[in-house]
Design a protein around this nucleic acid. Structure first.
Lengths: 198, 198
DNA sequence: CAGCAATGAGACGATGTAGTGTCATTCGTA
DNA sequence: TACGAATGACACTACATCGTCTCATTGCTG
């Protein structure tokens, strides 16, 4: 059940650039494996094969499986929310992009992983929430403040709940596919209208 | 780390009533253990000790660990939503009770378990959603229809999303404690007001 | 250029756990 | 009353997986 090894990697001491690239590759491969198998079910051998390295290297780079998982989540947490650069445009366009992003397979899977392991990694739950939900809500609040006035800013949090909606709960349970960008925008507009923000 | 065994249970063939009681006891104990440890981390020995039986009996009753987990979730799914009997009173009182129930440690923990194992037990995810969220939304829709007219019934689903709110996401991540009954009612009233259902 | 750090390859030990076998014991049932 | 089903107690097997060890190999670094 391991990933296909297409070519043997060369041995020997790597350059500094190779080290950085290898670390990134391990983290990236780990995401794929953990999303497919879950934390408990993923074996270190599987993780190593997916990253095209040996277990030796995994342990040399990260110490153990727990640390690799933590490093992966920490690494991803930075990119969990939308780019700040894309932080212009109308409120409804922002809301639509948030819906699309938050319902994506990648983010839903990451959320599922962290929820499942929240007991063993409480810090990761905090990090994920700070960089995800909290940031999205803050961004919505800024836009509402700018477009509709400061008095409506407290609507950002309930708006975010509507943007998630029942669909996101079904997503976490694996019952629904990810929405398209068009569906996401439609849902965002409907949510704004319900709070008289349309 | 096993539960303390206070008294040795008698041996020998049990009566029919004892069998039923024992099965219920195993299911109940399994909930506690799975909530504490998660599915993967809970051992069959732990489950057996918590139920005051031996592993032999667990296997005789349920076959294997997977089947025990499935039986437990199926058993609980029936009681996941509010009693139909308590289905009277005002809309805001119903909403308050739903908030309280859905944010309870027990339901949040069950949700967390099923989300974590949704890959291996997709049927359980369906059962939990049908008996939980879907039923709550249907009940809200009935009340809205009766109190405010049929045209507002489609608001039941967004209302349910507001009732969960950001708090429930934080609950799943283990970041917040369960709300008191008073807090639950306050939040329900605020949510109704936001949708002009107050 | 010589020594050493880092790696691939993969065997290996240690550990934990699912699930079963054995035997005595209790009690329902014919 | 005698037999057999169901269970407790618990040793035991089978197996998976974490993490380490060995050895050869490559290429940085002084």
């Amino acid at each position: 059940m391991y990933a296909q090894v297409t070519s043997a990697r060369k041995r020997g001491r790597p350059t500094a650039a190779e080290r950085r690239a290898r670390e990134a590759e391990i983290l990236s491969a780990a995401l794929g494996v953990f999303l497919r198998s879950g934390f408990g079910n993923a074996t270190v051998g599987e993780l190593a094969a997916a990253a095209q390295v040996t277990k030796r290297t995994i342990y040399a780079y990260f110490g153990d499986k727990d640390a690799l998982f933590a490093a992966m989540v920490q690494d991803l947490a930075v990119t969990v929310s939308l780019d700040t650069a894309s932080d212009h445009g109308t409120l409804s366009s922002l809301a639509g992009r948030i819906v699309f992003r938050v319902h994506s397979d990648e983010l839903v899977g990451l959320h599922r992983l962290v929820i499942a392991e929240a007991g063993r990694f409480p810090e990761l739950a905090r990090v994920l929430h700070s960089n995800g939900d909290a940031r999205h809500i803050a961004r919505l609040a800024e836009h509402i403040r700018a477009e509709r006035g400061p008095s409506l800013a407290p609507l950002a949090e309930p708006l975010f709940s509507l943007l998630l909606g029942e669909r996101h709960r079904r997503r976490l349970l694996g019952l629904d596919p990810a929405p398209s960008a068009g569906e996401a925008l439609d849902h965002a507009k409907a949510s704004l209208a319900r709070l008289s923000l349309g």
